[in-house]
Each structure stands twice: as C-alpha cells, then as structure tokens.
Design a protein around this nucleic acid. Structure first.
Lengths: 238, 238
DNA sequence: CTCGAAAGTTAACACCGTTAGCAATAGCTC
DNA sequence: GAGCTATTGCTAACGGTGTTAACTTTCGAG
C-alpha cells in the first residue's frame, strides 16, 4: 500500500495517474472533434492503443468516466476564472468580476462542446439526486463569482429590494452557509442569485446558438448585459 | 396519385399519418420516461409492436426522426404560447407578454426533457448550417414573443439606448426583415433581442437545474426578472 | 525469489443504427 | 372482378456500442 502517500508515490501510482489523465484527454478530444455521442469506451481505447475492457481498471462504467470528465472540466473552468480574476487588482472587485464574467463567456465560446456538457449534465443525468450537490465540483466554479459579489457588497453600493417575500428566506439561508464567515444579508444574496442567473443564462443562450437567428456578433449585447449586471451589484461602470 | 389532395385524403394517407403520429408519440414517451438516449429506433418499434427497419418507411434515419420530433415540439410550444396569449385582451400587449412568458416557463418546467431537447439541438447537431434557419419551426415559437414586443413598442414606452454601436446595424437589419411590414427602429430591435435573451436564458438555467444549489422555489426570482423585462419594454407593471 | 495484486487481454452477450432482399397487401386501372 | 404496382412490413445480417467473465502478463513488495 505504498508508504501511505510519501516521497516516492510508487512508480506504479505515477503511471496509473498518467493513464487516467490520458483517458480524460482522449475523451475530451473525441468530445471536441465529434460531439458528445462520440465519447465511446471503444473509441477512447482505440485511440489509446488498448482494448475497451481495459478501461474498466480506471473507471467503473461509461457513466462514471463522463462524470470524471465533467469534474475535470469544471476544475479547468474554475482555474481559468481564477486566473482572469487575479489579473485585476484585489482592491477592485468590480473590475475583477467583469474580467471573470468575460472569461466565462470566452471559455464557453471557445469550448462550446465542453460547456455544453457541463450545462446539460444535470438534466441529462437521470439519477443524480440534487440533494448532495454541496461538495460538487461546480461549487468551486460558481463560488469564484459568488465570492466576488460578496466583496462587492462589502464596498457598499448594492441596492437590495426593500422587502423580500417570505418564500425566499429559508432557501437563501442555505446559500449563506456556503459563504465564508461573513453574515451577508439575505436580500443581498437574492441579488447575487439573480445576477448569477442572468450571467449564466446569457452565456448559455449564446453558446447553444439561440442568437444566431438575430446576431452575427453578439459581443456588444454581452457587454451591455454585463454592464447592467455590474450596475445592479453597485460596481463602478468605469 | 389520389385526386391530388382533395375531398378524401385517400384512406392510405390517413393511416400513414396515424402511424407517423404514433411514432412521434412513442418517441416522446421514451424521451420523457428515460431521457434522450432512450429514443431508439428499436425501442420505438418494440413499443409499437413492429420491427425497427419498418420505421424507415416513415423516416429516412434516426437523425431525421429526432428532427421531426423537435419540430413537433416547437409547434406544440408555440401553440401553448399562443393560447396563453389569447387569454389576455389584445388591447394589452404587456399583459399578453407576461402571460406568454409565464407559459414559456411553465411549459419548460413541466416538460424538462422536451425543453432540453429543443434547447440543446443546435449545439448537438454537428452539421445543421445556421444559415437556413429562416423558415425554421423555431421561428413560430420566437415570433410570438417578438410580435408582442413590436406591439408593445407601438404603444410607446420603450426607452432604447441613445446610441447604437455600428457593429449592430447590419445584423439587426436582418431581424427587421422578419417582422411584418412595420419599420421598427433598430434600437428597439436591440431591446427585443436583449429581453428575449434574458427570458430564454433565465428559463434555461432553471430547467437545467443550475438553481438547485440555491433555491428550492425559484418562482419569485422569475417573477422579479419578468417584471424587470417588462419594465425595459415599457409595459405597465400593474 | 516468490507471490499476489494490478493491468491488460480475448470472447461473448445484448443492444444499437442501418442495409439488402423478400413477402404481403392495399388500391388504382382496365 | 382481374391484374398490376406502389406501399408497407418482415427477417437476416453488418459493424458499432457498453459490459461481464475468464484468462494472461507484468510488476513491485516482502
């Protein structure tokens, strides 16, 4: 059992990690080149020069392999967002949020198939109980944006709705628990969710091609929407 | 060749139409019960008590069958929207648009798999050239909402952006041609597209389960968003 | 050096879309 | 009504898919 995870991670472990990484890389390659239906155990194995049943030493089923791929993609997306965020000064959460939002759209448009997989997975998956979504890999992704909104709120400027329907209170409290330490008012969390929905939805509509009927270049529409969102969050529009 | 389509549509035609209808009904049943991957020629045939190759007398391929299903679903959605619209007086396009928007969300939430199929198809389909989307069945669907927006504009109240980036002009002119007769200003069409994107995106984010992490009851969020949209379109908020 | 676990293999099963070739049937023409 | 023909359906078969079972090889720890 190796030295319980110490200096040499046991050469065998290393080559196994390599194989796992190659599997996901190949699966993604198939996704990008030929669409989600092409992510086939046999195709992956073929491209890797091995036999299909051999893949079962690495993933217990085709479903789990796809799940591993989506987790990997969520990680990559989260990292891309964090990198974009860190290119703006921490003292200006408004500019940071703008940069992160643009990066979300940029990533989605340059990786449409990957984004499509992430966006459709919850609906496609018949079983995944939506209850245990707490330590979900998508949380790191959404958390980056949520955190920036919290910082933006600290600066003041968010104009929350004066009253909040009773329906909201219990649900928003759950979100609040996910936010580190700070006691964010429920009204502000409401604004977060509304802005998050708008941002995510706008990107999805564009990536899935539902703007093609109207626009050949949706850039300005997104920029306008983004300004709208940032205004709602009380960020300076520069 | 029958009487070139006159009084009796040739009994044979009738039974063929019935078969076509049953195929789509069965395909949809499989979609709803077991997800999009379950829409299988063999499963459809099995459920209909016939053999799989027999289906090729009705649809040239699996792909075309799915395409026929999506067209059918677009028709149904458009009809549902039109019905909701007609339950409000034509003299009040604002209330009509509100009713239609609510119906869009209601239909999507009560038919998530169907909505998922419609929303996903443009990205999933590898080939479909986006150029010939003109007499697309999705136009009737989107057109209902677009028409209401035009009527709303006639009432006055839309505050278009004062200036429009040059980038917009050429693209928006194409949309304008699809609108019956009336010379709608490009700035107003811009507002249409923005509102349409927001409405469609909000519904998609909810249907695909991306609000589950935060909300158990997204109703009030949607109502708030809808009010926002209607305000942007200059409709009385009642 | 031994030995057991890990990694990979082939063979096989049931399912899928699709094609080829054949049988039945229903309807139109005379 | 008889006969022809297009339509509708069938079975058999091909290659592709996920998955399991049973076997071989390889490699690392004792």
């Amino acid at each position: 059992m190796t030295s319980t995870g110490n200096p040499s991670p046991s050469r065998r472990h290393r080559v196994r990690e390599d194989a796992l990484e190659e599997i996901l890389r190949t699966a993604r390659h198939l996704l990008v080149e030929q669409g989600p239906a092409a992510i086939t155990l046999r195709a992956i194995a073929r491209e890797m020069g091995m036999s299909a049943p051999g893949l079962y030493r690495y993933h217990p089923s085709h479903r789990d392999l796809i799940q591993a791929l989506t987790s990997h993609l969520y990680e990559e997306l989260a990292t891309a967002l964090a990198t974009a965020r860190d290119q703006e000064p921490a003292s200006e959460p408004g500019r940071r949020l703008r940069a992160v939002s643009r990066e979300l759209r940029r990533w989605a448009l340059s990786h449409p198939r990957e984004f499509g997989l992430l966006f459709t997975k919850p609906l496609t998956d018949a079983d995944t109980a939506p209850g245990t979504a707490a330590h979900d890999p998508s949380w790191r992704f959404g958390g980056i944006i949520l955190d920036l909104m919290v910082q933006l709120w600290h600066r003041g400027g968010i104009q929350p709705p004066t009253t909040l329907d009773n329906t909201w209170i219990t649900q928003l409290e759950e979100v609040r628990e996910h936010l580190a330490g700070e006691p964010v008012p429920l009204e502000v969390i409401y604004v977060f969710v509304a802005c998050w929905t708008r941002l995510y939805g706008t990107v999805a509509v564009e990536v899935f091609g539902h703007l093609d009927f109207a626009l050949t270049d949706p850039d300005p529409l997104f920029e306008h929407t983004l300004t709208d969102i940032l205004t709602a969050l009380g960020a300076p529009t520069d």
